[in-house]
């Protein structure tokens, strides 16, 4: 049965340590100066001494109605059998149409391949082998969870049963598979 892979980012737990950022670079040997993911501060809010801040992991949101896929002239951008959005480097001509279409700035043209690149949920190298994505398994704050929503016993299903997951920029109707938990953070 097809999987419904989902990543959960529990913002209250994220400490902005960037272990995910670096793990991703090596797992997917992303060229110097380019990133599939980053976890910057969302900007300090409030005035001294009543301030708050949280860090937010940015990467491909794995839209199920993905603008990057619909605009791709060569079908290089596609959904795989488990609903993961991937780029077929072979078909990609590097036209950057998908870059302009992605509302989450998740994509870039890989310096070395010249093709569009982005988070793949580590599908090829990890997930398809039954392992967790590199960023998830190295998450120092235990802020990241990954699993199959079609499996009611998976950590993600269990967690989302108890906590409210939200997607970024819902107004675009992209239906992301990456969900953010805002409980315990000041927006």
């Amino acid at each position: 049965m097809a999987k419904k892979y989902t990543m959960i980012v529990n913002l209250a737990r994220c400490i902005g340590c960037q272990a995910c950022t670096v793990a991703c670079k090596f797992q997917n040997n992303v060229p110097e100066g380019q990133f599939r993911t980053k976890t910057p501060a969302n900007g300090l809010k409030g005035t001294y001494p009543n301030v708050s801040v949280f860090f937010i992991k940015e990467a491909c949101q794995m839209c199920q109605n993905a603008p990057c896929v619909s605009v791709c002239p060569t079908n290089a951008s596609h959904y795989n059998e488990d609903g993961v959005v991937l780029v077929d480097v072979d078909k990609c001509v590097g036209c950057m149409y998908c870059l302009t279409a992605c509302p989450y700035d998740a994509r870039f043209i890989n310096k070395e391949t010249g093709a569009a690149d982005k988070c793949t949920f580590c599908y090829e190298l990890k997930v398809s082998k039954g392992e967790k994505p590199a960023c998830v398994s190295t998450c120092v704050g235990s802020a990241l969870m990954f699993g199959d929503l079609n499996d009611p016993l998976s950590q993600v299903s269990q967690f989302l049963a108890k906590h409210k997951g939200e997607v970024r920029k819902p107004e675009f109707g992209t239906h992301p598979r990456v969900q953010y938990i805002y409980e315990g953070v000041v927006r």
């Binding site: 340590c17 960037q18 272990a19 670096v22 793990a23 670079k25 190295t138 998450c139």
Partner: peptide, 9 residues
């Protein structure tokens, strides 16, 4: 728990 920090990575 199989975790290392950014520097370790």
């Amino acid at each position: 728990g199989g975790v290392i920090c950014a520097r370790g990575n």
